[in-house]
Each structure stands twice: as structure tokens, then as C-alpha cells.
Design a protein around this nucleic acid. Structure first.
Length: 470
DNA sequence: TTTTGAGTTGTTCGA
DNA sequence: GTCGAACAACTCAAA
């Protein structure tokens, strides 16, 4: 009897799963296993809410496996040790898993592969990192040429998507550790593959066609909200790309096709940053651009705390942070606004914001989160020019013109009249009275003056303190 | 090898 | 209110 392990990490799905398919082709019996790595619980980059989403996804996967004659085996401990034990128990000849790109995952897999028969497959991205290079053999570091090269490769088709297996034969009697105790999942993001598929279908048959115009409107549900599902592979990258291509082909108007193409482009940003982290793992520790490794961050803990709690006094910034704190998810436009504010207005090291996002986000992904933060901070590949500093008032007026987003997430501003909503500190005293919102008491005064903070940021970025001058 | 055009998502200022 | 230019210089990608 040939037995194989399907080592699940961030591919919590049965459909279009290359690792599972490879295991089923190689073996008569397949053991689906997830290893609770104690490093997950200790990491300052992991929060309870994302863990709860992960565990919920594993429970959904377990249910789906049980309907197919199998069951998820949950183990705890160092992966190499736990897998070695399971191999000893089952006599499995091989382990199949989807390759990941983060430095931690690659080091972990190298350690396992050194001791055990580990077979890695593609799947985190459509095209595996390392497979898209310039003519001279070096990796792309600018998005647009990367995306051109990506699009020049054969596009995935629906026919390539691997079907979910109807039956999985798993040996009986293997033990599991109990499910860990975690907070209940976020209601807005029910974990699991079927929830992901429903959301993908809903988005790619409707909102995707308005995505080009609607995606920046923070009060609207104009985005796919699929990021947590992509993060844990409850949906494969290939399934998402195929759905985008199908939607583009089915578009009734050029504007609708543009919507689908814009969303596809966002999926390509995800691919791009996965490739970047694979080729430049040091970006997890330091700025991609060497010249900006010496920016003299102020790192004021009080200002950082005001930002983390949504009490900066800038409504659009606070609304974003509070949406994140309340739901574990944040609109992409709001991500850019709060990141620009932290790094430019408050001069806090982008790595502080990156870590906070990783603690809070359901979709927290080392590659995409790092790429986004370095872009906003202007320290990354293909980054915003240093002088591109978001004005939180203008961003709010432009992308939340009705103020509905602010009123929803910052209830103490609910009765502030629209002309003052994005700059409540300018409310005359009688208006504050009428709105039931006294600045400094019910809602904070601005933690910095944006115009002055902007000048300070320009100076700090223009002449970073060089470490050799210290 | 050299050259040339280009580079997600902005803001401010002055005409 | 609207519009175009300036904001710097650099690095990258590709011919």
C-alpha cells in the first residue's frame, strides 16, 4: 500500500490543488495533515484573528474531507519532527506540499527536505517565483515590465483547473491534537473553500464590471474582499485569474472589460510581490532601496499608539484603522492612506506599521504586506516618489465624498456636517456643540499638522542620515 | 555598450 | 474653480 502525506500550509482547498493532486496520483492512501507550529503562536507577526480564520478554514476543510472518506489530521510541534512521526506511523513514502515564498517558509521546508522526502508543487502564484526573469536572467523589479512578461506567458484556462477529488482514502486510527481555543471567526469573512467560491462567483459576475471606477470608494463594497481567502489558498491564484479572464471575455462594454482587466492587474501585483520576496528575502528586514535604509525615523511611541488605536485626529486615517481593528480587514485605499500617514506624517518606521498590519489582518501575507508598506513608504521596488505624500483631507474628500465611511467607523463624528467632516478641527464652537462633538474631548485634535509634517518628511527623506556618518 | 523612454495609486502652486 | 507644471534624480528595461 503506497501512502503519501498531503502537508497543508496555505492551500486550504480541495479544488485546483496541485499538491493534493500529486499526492493522489502517487499514492493509494493520502493523509491530509496540518502541523500547528509553535512558532506561529509566538511570532509578533501573527495575530489571534488570522489564526482563528486559519483554524476555521481547517475545520471547513476537515468537514469537506470527511464527506470524501477522509479527515484532517492535526498535529503540533516542529514540522520536521511532527512529520517524521507521522511517516513512522503511516509508512508514507513521500510528503507533498505547495511551495511558499517567505524566508521562514523556505527555511522550514529546506529543513524538512533535508530529512524527509518532501515534494514541493506550485500554486501560491500562477507562475512560480523564479520562472519570470529578464533576458539577462535577473528578476524584474518594476511592476509594469513584470506584468508584460507575465501576460506574454500562456494564460491559464478553465480546463487546467484541477477538479476536487471525489474520494480520498486515508488510513484509520491516526490521532489529532484538539482544535486550539481561539476567538470566533469574523462574520464578514466566513472561512472555507465554499465561502471563497461563492464570493468569487458573486464578485466576478457583478461588481468586477464596475471595479475600475468603484474600487477606490471606501464606503462602497466595490472590491472583491477575497484577500483572506487567497492568503490561505481557500481559493487558488489560478482560479482567481481564470475568473478574471472569463469576466473580461464576457464583458458587455469596454468599460466592463476594463473593470475585469483592472482586477486582473491587482492579482498581478500579488504575483509580483511574491516574486520580489522570493528573489529579495532581505526586504523583510530592511528597505529595498539602500539609500533609504538610513531615514531618521522619529518613532514616537505616543504618536504610534494614537495611530494604532485610530485616534490621530484625521478622520479618514482613524476610520481606516478602526475598520481594521473591528473587522480584521481594510479597504486598499485606506491601507495606502494610513500607511502614508504613519511613515510620512508621523515619521514612524514602515516596519512598525508592517508588523501591526500583520497582527491585525486576516489576509496578512508577508510578501504582499511588505510590498505594500515599502511602496507607501517609498523605500521599495518601483516605489512612490518620496515627494508623493498623501494629504489625508484630500484623500478623504476624494475617495469618501459622502463621508459615509468615516461616519460608519468613527461614530463620534456621525453628526458632524459634511463640510467639516474631513477636517473637524476647523469646526467653530457652535458647530461642535450642535454636532455633539467637541474636538479634544469627544474626538482628538490632530496629532500633527499635515502641512508641517509634510515638510519634515520631505527633509527626512531627502537627506537620510547615513550610518557611516554616525 | 550605449541610449532612450518609462515608471500604480499625489500634492501644491501659480496662472 | 480649473488646469498644467513642478516636484529630483534615479534606476530599470529593452532596443
Amino acid at each position: 500500500m503506497v501512502t503519501a502525506l498531503w502537508w497543508i500550509r496555505r492551500d486550504l482547498r480541495l479544488s485546483d490543488n496541485q499538491a493534493l493532486t500529486a499526492a493522489l496520483r502517487a499514492a493509494e492512501q493520502v493523509v491530509p495533515v496540518f502541523v500547528l507550529d509553535p512558532r506561529l503562536w509566538r511570532s509578533p507577526y501573527v495575530g489571534a484573528r488570522r489564526l482563528a480564520f486559519l483554524i476555521g478554514g481547517l475545520q471547513a476543510l476537515d468537514t469537506a474531507l470527511r464527506a470524501r472518506g477522509s479527515a484532517l489530521i492535526l498535529r503540533a510541534g516542529e514540522p520536521a519532527t511532527a512529520l517524521a512521526a507521522l511517516i513512522a506511523e503511516t509508512g508514507a513514502q513521500a510528503i507533498y506540499a505547495e511551495a511558499d515564498v517567505s524566508p521562514y517558509a523556505r527555511q522550514r521546508d529546506a529543513q524538512v527536505a533535508a530529512a524527509l522526502p518532501l515534494q514541493l508543487t506550485a500554486g501560491v502564484t500562477v507562475h512560480p517565483p523564479g520562472s519570470i526573469l529578464k533576458r539577462d536572467g535577473t528578476p524584474y523589479t518594476i511592476f509594469t515590465p513584470f506584468s508584460r512578461a507575465w501576460l506574454a506567458l500562456p494564460l491559464p484556462t478553465a480546463a487546467e483547473l484541477l477538479p476536487a477529488p471525489e474520494h480520498i482514502s486515508t488510513p484509520l486510527g491516526l490521532s489529532s491534537v484538539p482544535w486550539p481555543d481561539l476567538p470566533p471567526p469574523e462574520p464578514a469573512f466566513p472561512p472555507g473553500e465554499s465561502a471563497a467560491q461563492r464570493r468569487l462567483t458573486a464578485f466576478t459576475t457583478s461588481a468586477i464590471y464596475h471595479y475600475a471606477e468603484q474600487r477606490d470608494r471606501m464606503a462602497e463594497e466595490g472590491t472583491s474582499r477575497l484577500s483572506p481567502y487567497l492568503r490561505f489558498g481557500m481559493l487558488s491564484a489560478r482560479q482567481a485569474v481564470v475568473a478574471a479572464l472569463n469576466a473580461r471575455a464576457a464583458a458587455a462594454t469596454p468599460a466592463e472589460a476594463a473593470g475585469a482587466a483592472t482586477w486582473l492587474n491587482e492579482l498581478l501585483w500579488r504575483e509580483f510581490y511574491a516574486h520580489i520576496l522570493y528573489h529579495f528575502p532581505q526586504v523583510r528586514r530592511e528597505s529595498f532601496r539602500p539609500a533609504l535604509r538610513a531615514v531618521a525615523w522619529e518613532n514616537d511611541p505616543h504618536r504610534f499608539a494614537a495611530w494604532c488605536t485610530g485616534r490621530t485626529g484625521y478622520p479618514i486615517v482613524d476610520a481606516g484603522i478602526r475598520q481594521l481593528l473591528a473587522t480584521g480587514w481594510l479597504h486598499n485605499r485606506a491601507r495606502m492612506i494610513v500607511a502614508s500617514f504613519l511613515t510620512k506624517d508621523l515619521l514612524v518606521d514602515w516596519r512598525w506599521g508592517e508588523r501591526f498590519f500583520m497582527q491585525q489582518l486576516l489576509d496578512g501575507d508577508p510578501a504582499a504586506n511588505n510590498g505594500g508598506w515599502q511602496w507607501a513608504a517609498g523605500t521599495g521596488t518601483d516605489a512612490a516618489p518620496y515627494f508623493r505624500i498623501f494629504n489625508p483631507v484630500l484623500q478623504g474628500e476624494k475617495f469618501d465624498p459622502t463621508g459615509d465611511y468615516i461616519r460608519r467607523w468613527v461614530p463620534e463624528l456621525a453628526r458632524v456636517p459634511r463640510p467639516y467632516l474631513h477636517r473637524p478641527w476647523t469646526m467653530p464652537e457652535p458647530v461642535q456643540q450642535a454636532a455633539g462633538c467637541h474636538i479634544g474631548r469627544d474626538y482628538p485634535a490632530p496629532v500633527v499638522d499635515h502641512a508641517r509634517a509634510r515638510e519634515r518628511a520631505l527633509a527626512a527623506y531627502k537627506s537620510p542620515v547615513r550610518s557611516d556618518a554616525l
